[in-house]
Simulated assay, not measured.
Amino acid sequence: MADDLPLPVLERLRAVDWGDDAAAYEHANSRALLMREYLRRTAGWARAYRAEESWPFFDIAEHVAPEVRTPSEVAAELEAVLTGLAPSSLKKTCRGAVRWAVLRGTGGELPRDLPDDPYEPLLLMYERGGGYFVEEFIDLNGAMLRLGTVESNLSARPFPTLAPATLDALDAEGEITYFAKVGEVDPRAGGPRGIVRRRVDDGRTYDEAFAPNLRWEPTDCLRLNELGHNEADHVGITEIEAAASIELAVVRTA
């Protein structure tokens, strides 16, 4: 095993600004989606290795291949990064992510029917505004999530959309509802003709369409549709469905 295999993960953790409250609020929506995806992915590993009692913030490699350890020098550097951080479960996930990188680097075969990279959503969430606290809910410092159970998270819809541009497009202030323009393609099949959102923030309503320039621009289409003046209809979709369509647009523009 090469000595540098876990180092990219260690450097990502070293670069996190754990006290950036402004970033946490700015990226509240995407951070919540990333945490949900982490819970879903790790629920699969917990069920497969009978580690439900350790879920959700745990060292997966400990259950998959306990003989694989993080090199001592890397572990020492990681502990320096984690000094002063809380809660203890956050530190456990960071150690788990580094050890997972070590395990992946051994070249051993892992189950193909389980999520390929269980820690990636959580690493991305950390990079978009720091950590979390757990009380009655998971507090992401800008969003609150119910933890749920292994079973409920196993049945959650996957959120495989992890591209930064897509995550950025999901972040906005206010209560957001997404709509897809009904056309020749079923919006729930991942290919609507257009994505529109309605934001309600401080009592004001903003209707915005995701434009070809990959930005949200003001639109009257929802209001015209409500007045019966718009030929195209719109159907409500989930934020995960909206994310999939946004990512398609990002890929087409690249």
Score class of each variant (00 low, 15 high):
Asp3Asn: 11
Pro8Ala: 05
Arg14Trp: 09
Asp20Tyr: 07
His27Ala: 12
His27Met: 07
His27Trp: 05
Leu33Asp: 00
Tyr38Val: 04
Ala43Arg: 01
Ala43Phe: 08
Arg50Gln: 15
Ala51Phe: 06
Trp55Ala: 15
Val64Ile: 12
Ser72Asp: 15
Ser72Gln: 14
Leu82Gly: 01
Thr83Met: 07
Pro87Thr: 00
Leu90Ser: 00
Gly96Met: 05
Val98Pro: 00
Gly108Arg: 13
Gly108Tyr: 02
Asp113Ala: 14
Asp117Gln: 11
Asp117Phe: 05
Tyr119Thr: 00
Pro121Phe: 07
Leu122Phe: 15
Leu123Phe: 04
Leu124Val: 11
Glu135Val: 06
Ala143Val: 03
Met144Phe: 13
Thr149Glu: 05
Val150Asp: 12
Asn153Ala: 08
Ser155Lys: 14
Thr166Cys: 09
Ala169Phe: 07
Ala169Glu: 06
Asp171Leu: 11
Asp171Ala: 12
Thr177Asn: 10
Tyr178Val: 05
Ala180Trp: 04
Val182Tyr: 10
Glu184Trp: 09
Val185Pro: 02
Asp186Phe: 10
Gly191Ser: 15
Pro192Ile: 11
Arg199Lys: 15
Gly203Thr: 11
Asp207Phe: 04
Ala211Asn: 13
Leu214Glu: 06
Cys221Ile: 10
Leu222Asp: 10
Arg223Val: 13
Glu247Lys: 06
Leu248Gly: 11
